[in-house]
């Protein structure tokens, strides 16, 4: 059964790695901008350092594309200066799942070819 959303989801793939990380961070928990940036840095093993300008550009596109929305809920120790909190939408969840599946498929391919173990296949 083809989900009518499939086409919309597919339109967002493949995700830029940075965007993927942002969505992953939001998938884990609703948070504000700086929180997302921190999470991305941790998850990528300190490889991806997002700064304010680029981050907000991605964020704006995600908001406009309907993958992310402002969250009404705020944690109890909220500091208003932190700005808005953001969460994934249903579409966003679908997209990040689809991308993960796509990446997994690629990893499976490399395992088949034996590249992961460092040796050549016969």
């Amino acid at each position: 059964m083809t989900d009518p959303h499939d086409a919309t989801v597919a339109a967002h793939l493949p995700l830029k790695p940075v965007v993927f990380h942002i969505l992953l961070a939001l998938a884990q928990r609703t948070s504000h901008a700086y929180g997302v940036i921190q999470a991305v840095r941790e998850r990528s093993g300190d490889l991806i350092h997002l700064e304010t300008g680029p981050f907000y550009r991605h964020l704006r596109k995600l908001l406009d594309g309907g993958l992310v929305r402002e969250s009404a809920e705020r944690p109890p120790d909220d500091d208003r200066r932190r700005g808005a909190y953001y969460q994934l939408t249903r579409l966003g969840k679908k997209v990040v799942t689809a991308e993960s599946r796509r990446l997994a498929g690629l990893v499976a391919l490399t395992e088949e070819l034996g590249l992961m173990s460092g040796g050549e296949t016969t």
Partner: peptide
């Protein structure tokens, strides 16, 4: 853009 994001941008910038 500023109206939408200024607060968050300020805060993020400060931390960074």
């Amino acid at each position: 853009f500023r109206t939408r994001f200024a607060d968050g941008m300020q805060y993020t910038f400060e931390r960074q």
